[in-house]
Amino acid sequence: MLDNIPDTLTLKELQEVLQIGKNTALRLVNEDIITGHRIAGKWLVLKEDVIEYIQKS
């Protein structure tokens, strides 16, 4: 699952993988539904956290 994506995703990549909009992606990381880390002003999300979210959904 998700073999062709990098181990760390930007918010834009998260949107593309989950086929969601920017506001939904921001809500997911801000509400810690998907664990995200803000580094140098950019959100980064681990691929394993995205897989875990997909499996729970």
Score class of each variant (00 low, 15 high):
K42D: 09
L26G: 05
V50L: 08
T24G: 05
D32A: 10
G36W: 02
I20V: 15
K42Q: 08
I51S: 04
L11M: 10
L46H: 15
V50W: 05
A25G: 01
E52F: 11
E13I: 02
Q55L: 11
W43P: 00
L28R: 12
G21V: 02
Q15F: 10
K22T: 03
E48M: 07
T24V: 03
A25M: 01
A25K: 05
I20A: 08
K47A: 06
T35E: 07
I39L: 15
K12F: 06
G36E: 00
K12R: 13
Y53L: 09
Q19N: 13
L46F: 15
L26I: 05
I51L: 09
D3A: 12
K22A: 13
L28H: 06
V29M: 03
G41E: 04
E13G: 10
L18M: 07
D3I: 14
L11P: 03
V45L: 14
I51P: 00
W43N: 04
I39A: 11
N23W: 13
K47H: 10
T35C: 09
L2F: 12
L46A: 15
R27D: 03
R27S: 05
I5L: 06
I5P: 06
D49W: 10
I34E: 00
T35D: 07
E13K: 11
T24K: 13
A25R: 02
G41P: 00
L26T: 04
N4R: 02
Y53M: 09
I51A: 04
D32I: 01
I20T: 07
M1N: 04
K42E: 08
L9Y: 04
L46N: 09
L46V: 07
V29S: 09
Q19C: 11
Q15M: 12
L2D: 14
K47Q: 05
E52S: 15
L2N: 12
T24Y: 07
E31Y: 10
L44A: 07
L11I: 06
E48V: 12
D49P: 01
L28V: 03
H37W: 10
L2P: 14
L26A: 05
L28F: 11
Q19S: 08
S57Q: 15
K47Y: 09
D7F: 12
E13H: 09
N4F: 09
E48L: 15
T10C: 08
I20C: 10
Q15I: 01
V29R: 13
L18N: 04
L26S: 07
N30I: 05
K22N: 14
Q15D: 01
Y53V: 02
L46D: 08
D49E: 12
L28I: 00
G41S: 12
